[in-house]
Computed example of a mutant assay.
Amino acid sequence: MECKNCEKSLFADYNYCANCGAKVIRNRITIKNIWNDFTERFLNIDNTFLRTFVHLFSKPEAVIGGYIRGVRRKYLNPISYFTIAVTLGGLFIFVYRKFFPDALDFQQQSLNAKPEANALAQDISSTIFEYQSLFYIATLPLLALISRLVFINSKKFNLSEHFVINVYGYSHLSILVNALYLATIWNTPAFQVVTFFNMFFQIAYFTYIFKRLFGLTIPQTLLKLLIFLGILLVLFIALVIAMAAYMVVNKQ
């Protein structure tokens, strides 16, 4: 008998491969063992997903710093965690487009704004929501570069390690926020609150993880935050202008 994963020889009574640790599967797939596999991976209190999710709140330096230092089995790696975040984001987009296509209408109800401005704001909001995963995939390297520049005087983490930090941070926030979106999309006021505070969630959480990772004091944290926000604000304004110009040109 051979392991189906690494093809090493196994004794007949083995339940796990001694070489790669994979579970030995003897039976055909059924709904029951699919469900058992799902619960074992994601609902078991001792599984890596829940441990990663909880510890990214309570001790992000253990998850992120641990991965950078070489801890590979205790927590989900950043790519796997990012994949879960993208999947949940895709589920939200499906629910939003299929069942609640008008959920963002509250963002364009400005009495003083011109209809054209309201329509443009609605288009921008819808585009960001619909392509949020692609948007963040494209911006993650940029965010890593910005955070590396903010900590240019520190050699604790290199650029690639800053990328890992940002992937973990984005993935964690994406899982949390998209779960809140799914829970509140049927209730416009609640959905509006989550949408409004989304950016504040991101700023607060990234400030928190960088404080923990670098062991910053409160004054140091505030200074780094101001530098980060200054760089991000300039880039964000440039991006909004570019998106608005693109949409205006396409509508002509």
Rank of each mutant, 00 (worst) to 15 (best):
G21N: 08
G21T: 11
G21Q: 06
A22K: 09
A22P: 00
A22V: 11
K23G: 03
V24D: 05
V24A: 04
I25W: 05
I25S: 09
R28S: 11
R28G: 00
R28A: 15
T30C: 02
I31V: 13
K32M: 04
K32F: 10
N33V: 06
N33T: 08
N33P: 09
N36E: 15
D37S: 15
F38A: 10
F38P: 02
R41G: 07
F42Y: 15
N44Y: 08
I45V: 15
I45E: 13
I45P: 12
N47D: 13
T48A: 15
L50W: 06
F53S: 05
F53E: 05
F57W: 11
S58L: 15
S58C: 00
A62D: 12
A62N: 13
V63M: 02
G66E: 00
Y67D: 01
I68H: 10
I68K: 08
R72V: 09
R72N: 09
R73W: 09
K74V: 08
N77V: 09
N77E: 14
I79P: 00
Y81V: 08
T83V: 12
T83E: 12
A85E: 03
V86C: 10
L88Y: 02
L88P: 02
G90S: 08
L91Q: 05
F99D: 04
F100L: 06
F100Y: 15
F100H: 14
D102I: 00
D102K: 14
A103P: 03
A103V: 06
A103F: 01
A103Q: 03
L104F: 01
L104I: 09
F106G: 03
Q108D: 06
Q108R: 14
N112V: 11
A113Q: 12
A113S: 15
P115T: 03
P115E: 04
P115G: 02
E116H: 05
E116M: 10
A119W: 02
A119T: 05
L120K: 11
A121V: 08
Q122I: 03
Q122E: 07
D123V: 04
D123Q: 12
